[in-house]
Every structure is written in C-alpha cells, then in structure tokens.
C-alpha cells in the first residue's frame, strides 16, 4: 500500500510537472506569437510611421515610440470607432482612420502597441523656429498636472508622453484641439479634456513657446 501511495504521489507530481512545463511553453509561445503578430501588423504602419516608429513628416505621421502601450491602444480604438480622425478637415486623421481598421481585435491593437514600445524612443529633429522656452515654461504649468513635470505623460490620467515627439505634430494637434477638429466628438472624453486646455493658448506664438519648452524636457 505504502509503495502504491508513493507511486501515486510520484505520478501525480510528474503530472503537475508536465502540466506546468506545458503551461510555461504555451505562455512563452503565446508571448512570442503576440510579439510576432505585433511586428507583422506594424508592417502596415511602416509606410507612414517608418520602420523605427519615429514618424515621417512628409506623411504627416508622428513618432509613436515615446507613447505608452495604453495610450496607443486607446487611440487605435478611437480611430477604429471614428471618434478620432473622422473630421472633414483632419487630413492626417482621415489617413489613419482606415488604417485602424486593419486591427481586427483588441489583442491586435495590444500586440502592435507592445511592438511599437519595444522599438525604443529617441529624440527627433526639431523643425519649428521662434519658440521661447522660458515663456513656454510658464505656460506649461497648466499642462503639468496631466502630462507631468518631465512631459512623460500619465496613463492614469490618459495623458500621453510629449517628449521625443515632432514639434510640428504638437503644433498641429494643439491647433486641431483648439479649432475642434480633434476632441469635439461627444464620445471623445479624453479629447474633451484637452480641448479647453488648448483654448488657453491664445495664439500660435504661445503654442510655439510651450512646444519649445517641451523640447527641452526631452534633452
């Protein structure tokens, strides 16, 4: 009896070991598959955002690598649902609108976001001139609450990172928020949070100043 019991124990522990091994292998392969899926899906994005995810100004495409996974997924969901990028005057957004349809499920969005973040963030070439970072620092006090003192954003507040992003893109988005081209859809709750903030920037010079300050945060 004793021997039988020990055999049973041996077999059951062996079974647990096999099950655990299978679980680990399945987990590892699913992670690998998700990575591959992300890489595969990102091929559709490379034409505009570049293979390194740094964005291509000529295609009106921003850098993606400094953004968080959560923010990328949320934006993809918005584009797919037509909450963002469906305004008639949003030329760049309208380009992104059909591309988001290539993400069939939320897992696809998660996989591509995870792949983008894995590409690693790096500074991009400045293009705007005439911004005063000292004046911009004072204006940035308003942005600080959500985007943080270092401009790295806050996922809990749905605020994206602003560092290592193209300055022309910042200017474009601020103008879009201010004119209602972005963030005016009633379903765009986080966009609606940003809209009144953009109203505080009286003119283009103020926008350029704050963008010039944001540039210093990335250095």
């Amino acid at each position: 009896m004793k021997s039988n019991r020990s055999d049973a124990g041996f077999y059951s522990s062996k079974r647990i070991l096999v099950a655990l091994t299978l679980f680990v292998v399945a987990l590892a392969s699913s992670t690998l598959e998700a990575d591959k899926r992300g890489e595969q899906l990102y091929r559709n994005c490379t034409i505009c955002h570049g293979p390194d995810g740094q964005g291509i100004p000529l295609q009106l495409a921003p850098s993606l690598t400094s953004l968080s996974e959560k923010y990328i997924v949320e934006q993809l969901k918005k584009y797919k649902a037509g909450i963002r990028g469906a305004h008639a005057e949003d030329t760049a957004g309208l380009r992104m609108l059909p591309m988001a349809q290539t993400m069939i499920t939320e897992d696809d969005m998660q996989a591509v976001a995870s792949y983008i973040v894995s590409l690693g963030s790096s500074p991009v070439e400045p293009t705007l001139e005439g911004g005063d970072p000292v004046k911009g620092q004072a204006t940035y006090a308003t942005c600080l609450a959500c985007h943080g003192p270092e401009g790295k954003g806050n996922d809990l507040l749905n605020a994206p990172s602003l560092v290592n992003q193209h300055d022309w893109y910042h200017l474009d988005q601020l103008k879009k928020f201010k004119s209602g081209v972005r963030g005016s859809n009633p379903q765009d709750i986080t966009g609606a949070q940003m809209r009144p903030m953009s109203m505080l920037l009286a003119d283009e010079q103020m926008m350029k100043d704050v963008i010039a300050y944001i540039k210093t945060l990335g250095n």
């Binding site: 305004h87 008639a88 309208l94 380009r95 609108l97 059909p98 591309m99």
Partner: peptide
C-alpha cells in the same frame, strides 16, 4: 473631395447652393 484614404462630401443643404453656411459635410 478625395484624399488618402477617405471621401468627404459637401451636401448643398436646404438652400441647394454649395459653399454656404447650411452645407452638410460628411466623411465617407
């Protein structure tokens, strides 16, 4: 108006004249 990759339609609205305030703009 066509663009990469969407269609924007400007409907003339009730006054049947394009380029006026009552134009209805829709995407796709």
């Amino acid at each position: 108006v066509a663009q990469q990759w969407a269609w924007t339609f400007y409907h003339a609205g009730e006054d049947k004249v394009l380029g006026t305030e009552d134009d209805i703009v829709s995407v796709n």
